[in-house]
Computed example of a mutant assay.
Amino acid sequence: MPKVTYRGGPDGERTIEAESGRNLLEIAEENDVKMGSACGGVCACSSCHCYVVEGEDSLDEPSDAEEDRLDMAFEVHPNSRLGCQVKLGDEDIVVELSQESVEVWFNEHPEHRPKAG
């Protein structure tokens, strides 16, 4: 089974074994990774914006719909993807969460926001 390593955000780095064909957002949600999902994962926003750091060649190319939504994201790079659209292949990948995605997650879960100190 391939592994996804999520980097960034308040949890640091987490590696999760997951089934091929699942998308990065589903895997993140099932494993308490703080990846935003304002639209619920239907490619209607850019809140699950992330960067594929390793393993990009094992993934399908982004669809036109995904590229259109990435136009709404902040700090888009050539390796930017939407977690709801990236289906895990048969190889391990490393993903870095965008600051935008982590902030959306905390907006969706304010009870988990760190207290100002």
Rank of each mutant, 00 (worst) to 15 (best):
M72K: 09
N31G: 13
E54N: 13
S47W: 00
I93Y: 06
C48Q: 04
G12I: 09
G36C: 09
V33Q: 02
L25C: 02
E103P: 05
D90T: 11
G41A: 12
E30D: 15
A18F: 05
D92Y: 04
M35W: 04
C45E: 04
P110W: 11
E91T: 07
F74S: 11
D64I: 14
L82F: 06
E75R: 11
V4D: 01
A116K: 13
C43L: 14
I27G: 06
C84T: 01
V53A: 06
R69K: 11
V4N: 01
L24W: 04
L24G: 01
V52M: 07
G89Q: 09
E67S: 11
V95K: 01
K3F: 09
I27W: 03
V95S: 08
T5W: 07
R81Y: 06
M72G: 05
V104D: 06
G41Q: 08
I27C: 02
R81P: 04
I16V: 14
M72E: 14
S37C: 12
D32R: 14
L25M: 15
M35V: 15
C43R: 01
E26I: 10
L25V: 12
V104F: 10
S98Q: 00
E61P: 07
L24R: 01
Q85W: 09
T15Y: 05
E13M: 02
K34A: 14
A28S: 04
P10G: 08
M35K: 03
N23L: 08
C39W: 04
R14E: 10
Q99D: 15
V95N: 00
V104W: 05
V52E: 00
D11M: 13
V33A: 03
I27N: 05
P78M: 09
E19F: 11
E19N: 14
E54Q: 15
D60G: 11
C45Q: 07
R14M: 07
G40S: 04
